[in-house]
Computed example of a mutant assay.
Amino acid sequence: MPRFKQLIFLGFIATGALTGCASGRSAERDGQAGKGRAPGDAIRPERGGNEEVTEQDANGDGRPDVWTYTVDGRKVRQELDLNWDGRVDLTRYFDANGDKVRESLDLDFDGRVDATYFYEKGVNTRRERDTNGDGRPDSFTYYEAGKLVRKERDTRGTGRIDYWEYWENGQVDRIGEDLDGDGTVDKWTRNPNNTARE
């Protein structure tokens, strides 16, 4: 493959990883956030004994940039080196149908997971991110029917959500804040410019 085609190929892969898609339904935070994700864990998991790996040099520098893992001919995982430093920056996981179910991203290139995107039938439904570097997600974003519907954050680093944004028609409808740390909203602020609300 000519070098320019390899660069275009890797660009498409990177773009898909770093842009958001939408979904038909949101995963509910209660009881599900964090399941299956591993922020703070190594971006490159250990290879399973039954996995076969295929390496690809997408930029033509003689070193692999894409590693595709299969079990019995079915793709289960793909790892990508997006900045060509020889280290994995993105790991994708696939279900039995070949649909993407999760992506783990190393956004600061330290070899650890900083963000995890979850998918249902290959479409992004939720994103979790560790913004303070403690190895735990503290920012959660939810999508429904192709649109952002909710953002939640742990702004104090306590492991408990204390800030909520609810979105309607592409804009913030209301913001909830937990001022006393008990996990419930104490103060609501409505967007006075949201004309979509009746």
Rank of each mutant, 00 (worst) to 15 (best):
R150N: 10
R126S: 11
A42Y: 05
E52N: 14
T131I: 08
T141Q: 13
N97K: 12
K121L: 13
Y69H: 06
N97T: 11
V113M: 03
Q56C: 06
F118G: 05
A27H: 02
L107R: 05
E52P: 00
R77P: 00
V123E: 14
P45W: 00
G60R: 03
V53H: 00
A38L: 07
Q32A: 11
G34I: 03
D30V: 13
G60V: 08
L148S: 10
G48Q: 15
R127P: 07
L82A: 08
R127T: 12
K121I: 09
L80T: 07
G135L: 04
A96C: 07
V149P: 08
D89E: 13
K121Y: 13
Y93M: 15
V53E: 09
S139Y: 13
R63A: 12
G31C: 08
P64L: 05
K147Y: 13
K35Y: 01
V101G: 01
V53L: 05
E46P: 15
V66H: 02
D114Y: 01
F109D: 14
E144D: 15
L80V: 10
K147G: 12
T116H: 02
V66A: 05
G31Y: 06
D85C: 12
E79L: 01
L107K: 02
G73I: 11
R25C: 13
R129G: 07
K35E: 01
D89A: 09
D138G: 10
R29Q: 09
R87H: 15
D85G: 09
D81L: 06
G48I: 12
G73C: 11
K100D: 09
S26E: 14
G48M: 15
N132M: 01
T116F: 02
S26N: 14
E128T: 02
V149M: 10
I43Y: 00
G62E: 08
E46F: 15
E51K: 08
G73N: 11
L82M: 08
K100H: 10
G60L: 11
N124H: 14
I43V: 15
R47N: 11
V53Q: 02
V53G: 03
R112D: 04
E120C: 06
L107N: 04
A33D: 04
Y69I: 00
T125K: 04
R44F: 02
T141W: 09
E55K: 11
G34F: 01
L105R: 01
G111V: 08
E51Q: 13
G40W: 04
E144N: 14
D138C: 09
T70N: 08
R92G: 06
R29T: 07
A96H: 12
R92Y: 06
I43R: 01
D99A: 13
A96M: 12
A33W: 06
D99R: 10
E128L: 03
L148R: 07
P137L: 06
T54A: 03
G111S: 09
E128A: 02
R102K: 15
D30I: 11
S26Q: 14
R150Y: 11
